[in-house]
Computed example of a mutant assay.
Amino acid sequence: MIGAVDDNKLSVNLNAIAVLRNRRNLPWPNVVGMGRIALDAGADGITVHPRPDQRHIRFTDLPDIRRLIDDEFPNQEFNIEGYPDDAFLDLAETYANQITLVPDSPDQSTSDHGWNFVKDSAFLKPVIKRLKDRSIRVILFVNPVVDGLDQAKALGADGIEIYTGPYGDAYDSDKKQLLALEAVTLVAEKAKQLGLLVNAGHDLTVPNLAPLVKNVPWLYEVSIGHGLIADALEHGMRETVLRFKRALAI
Rank of each mutant, 00 (worst) to 15 (best):
L131S: 02
G148I: 03
L149K: 08
Q193F: 09
A122G: 09
L155N: 09
A180D: 04
G159A: 08
K192R: 15
L155G: 05
K176H: 12
I139D: 03
V146E: 13
V146P: 00
Q193N: 14
T205W: 14
L179R: 15
E161V: 12
I139T: 07
T185G: 03
V198E: 13
Q151D: 13
D133A: 07
R134Y: 04
G156T: 11
L196H: 11
V127P: 00
V145R: 02
L186M: 12
H202Y: 12
I139H: 02
P144Q: 02
D150L: 02
K153T: 08
I128C: 09
R134G: 00
L155Y: 12
G201W: 07
D172Y: 10
D133C: 01
R134T: 02
A152R: 03
A180I: 03
D169T: 06
Q177D: 05
K190E: 09
Y167A: 09
H202E: 10
I128M: 11
G148M: 07
L181R: 04
Q193W: 07
D169I: 02
G201E: 06
V187C: 05
E189N: 11
I139Q: 02
R137N: 12
L197Y: 14
A122L: 15
G168H: 06
I160A: 04
V187G: 03
D158A: 06
K129L: 12
H202L: 07
G165E: 11
D172H: 09
K129I: 04
D203W: 01
F141P: 00
D150R: 08
A188M: 09
R134Q: 14
